[in-house]
Simulated scan of single mutants.
Amino acid sequence: MTTDKDHIIKSYDTELTRLTGEIVRMGELSVKQLEAAIDVVERRDERAAQRVVDNDDTIDRMEQDVSHDVVRLLALRAPMAGDLRNVFAALRIAADIERIGDYAANVAKRAIPLSMVAPVRPAAGLEHLATLAATGVRDVLAAYQDRDAERAHAVWQNDTVLDEAYTGYFRQLLTYMMEDPRNITPCTHLLFMAKNIERIGDHATNIAENVWFQVTGEPLQAPRRKLDETASADFSGLPVKPDRP
């Protein structure tokens, strides 16, 4: 006799495990894309940057495969309750990972024009932001694979660290642009790249929310502190270099 935790059709477990593994591989690829994008920024290698951009197609295809697998599971297994949460979580998490891949590709796209102008010192600051984002994505992927709600919740909470780092980097770039107009073009590229990385962190928190709901059956109700202050911060106190005569 089966219990509530048993599946009448045991092959469902095998299919779900395979689906989870595919999503985790997809997520790891998206993180490697981000790391590769940061590497080409540091090396100022526009050809390598274009390869990173082109590789985003692989993540897109994987997301489509996951969507097809989810539809097939829904049609053939008609999952209920916790099983249904598992299937829908897979669909939503795959969509977030696809967006993470897009943002990594956007960083690589910006690396191409950035490599054509004189280097600026703040470019090195992108690596710290990317490290925070990559750590969050890897941690939440592990939480998803292990069905670990508490680890997912920790990722959800720790996104404030990336938000604070992004706000500080934003201020730094504005300072450089105000000090010398020649810095405006490269720093504008860096601003967009940093925002893409910050958005990767947001998608990691989306995944964390889905893992929490998948495991507990309850949504995360507590409001998450959002410390990206770039839209409302007062930057009037930043130094401004006087106009040249």
Rank of each mutant, 00 (worst) to 15 (best):
D146L: 13
L173S: 06
R199W: 06
V120I: 08
I184T: 13
D60N: 15
I93L: 01
Q64W: 13
G125H: 12
D96H: 15
A194Q: 05
D96R: 11
L227K: 07
T131M: 01
E150P: 01
H7A: 05
R224F: 05
R224Y: 06
V107T: 02
V240P: 04
I8T: 14
E198V: 01
V140G: 05
V117G: 08
D243M: 07
V31D: 02
P239T: 02
A95Q: 06
L29F: 09
E35L: 00
A208I: 07
D139R: 07
D45Y: 01
S236P: 12
V53G: 05
D57H: 10
T188P: 03
Q221A: 14
A111M: 08
D234S: 00
T175W: 09
S30K: 00
D65Q: 12
Q221W: 10
E28G: 11
T216D: 04
A48Y: 06
Q64R: 15
R147E: 11
V53I: 15
T160G: 01
V120T: 06
G136N: 10
A142W: 07
D39P: 03
D159A: 09
R182V: 08
D228H: 06
I184F: 08
K32F: 07
M193K: 05
D60T: 09
A118I: 06
T188Y: 04
A75R: 04
A222T: 15
D45N: 12
L173T: 12
E209R: 01
Q33L: 13
R199M: 06
A123C: 09
R47D: 15
L162W: 09
T205H: 00
R151F: 06
A89W: 00
D180P: 09
V41M: 08
P181V: 09
M193Q: 05
